[in-house]
């Protein structure tokens, strides 16, 4: 396993919020069950297992069966949360996700843990940076990428109440809570984290707090950057993207994912067809070299300074 990131004051692993919330929900709804592939620990479901030993189904290291079992549990009236490292959940079981969950439309919640490059030095076999591109065309799966602990808890609560397939993508990288007034989790809606008029930075998951830092840096130079937390990748908030394009004229997308087919791809699809503006897509271009998460973020410019650099570049590409 990757070495845990150094503990930083005010930074939290969203898996803790997930685990707390699923335990609370399960207390009140006996239909909620968890399905894992020998992933109790990495899913932080030890507490759930203690409280509800009969409601945790560990199929062992068998992802295809795990996802199929999830569909069957939904057929049997349960509300299954299928939780596993997102690289194996979405990659190994992709056909089950497509046919048994998306196409069949079962009320199953897929929870991808330790997504992106959270496994750092373990390398691309254990990274999950392709999941956005794999799951985006399965458009009846609501795909949610929480940016902090609060949003994680809200997304899990919403998913439990929502009738239909959901994919929640979590990291294991500690992130700070975002500072947004009167927050309300709205699936399919971008969250305006910061107002701005010169450029819009659209980020998700672990990248949102870095985008906020970039905006602070840019403000010192007199650049007003709007920050959108695009926690829902599917369905995409196209209205917020259109507004960003028409009102700020330049966009930066930032995701802990492959830039092909992910958030940046989705934003570019929408703007190129409707309101073409300069876009800088930040993320990973493909398989990444060996390195810690911190090194990888730095190497690929996924830092406040790197995001600010992309913002300046996007602004520089505006016409006129």
């Amino acid at each position: 396993m990757a070495a845990p990131a150094a503990k930083q004051e005010g930074f939290y692993d969203c898996r803790d919020a997930w685990a707390r919330t699923i335990e609370e929900l399960a207390e009140n709804d006996p239909r909620i069950v968890a399905v894992v592939n020998d992933s109790v620990g990495s899913s932080k479901l030890g507490g759930f297992q203690k409280k509800f030993p009969d409601r945790l189904i560990n199929v062992g290291i068998a992802e295809q069966n795990m996802v199929g079992v999830g569909a069957g549990l939904a057929n049997g009236g349960r509300i299954p949360f299928v939780s596993a490292a997102s690289c194996f959940l979405t990659g190994r079981a992709l056909e089950q996700v497509k046919a048994d969950i998306a196409y069949a439309g079962f009320n199953v919640k897929l929870v991808g843990q330790s997504s992106g490059v959270a496994y750092g030095e373990l390398g691309p076999t254990h990274h999950s940076i392709e999941d956005f591109a794999w799951l985006r065309p399965l458009s009846n799966i609501t795909m949610v990428v929480p940016a902090d602990s609060w949003e994680t808890a809200e997304a899990v609560k919403w998913a439990a109440a929502h009738e239909g397939p959901v994919y929640i993508r979590l990291s294991r990288m500690p992130v700070p809570d975002l500072s947004v007034e009167d927050r309300k989790f709205q699936p399919g809606k971008a969250e305006l984290v910061r107002k701005g008029s010169d450029v819009t930075i659209i980020a998700c998951g672990t990248m949102v707090h870095l985008a906020v830092q970039a905006a602070v840096e840019l403000e010192a130079e007199g650049i007003s950057a709007r920050i959108l937390n695009m926690a829902t990748i599917t369905p995409l908030d196209e209205a917020a993207i259109s507004a960003a394009a028409s009102e700020t004229g330049a966009i930066v997308t930032v995701e802990e994912a492959n830039i092909h087919g992910g958030l940046g791809g989705a934003v570019a699809e929408h703007t190129s067809a409707n309101l073409p503006v300069p876009i800088e897509r930040m993320g990973f271009p493909g398989f990444v070299p060996t390195g810690s998460v911190e090194w990888l973020f730095d190497h690929f410019g996924l830092t406040a300074a790197g995001i600010a650099r992309s913002a300046r570049k996007a602004i520089g590409r505006k016409r006129g």
């Binding site: 069966n65 079992v69 999830g70 569909a71 069957g72 057929n75 049997g76 349960r78 089950q96 048994d100």
Partner: peptide, 17 residues
């Protein structure tokens, strides 16, 4: 190869309840 896992989930749901 999809039916047996899904059926298994249905059977587990039955056993659980």
């Amino acid at each position: 190869g999809h039916g047996l896992p899904v059926a298994l989930g249905i059977a587990i749901a039955g056993q659980m309840t």
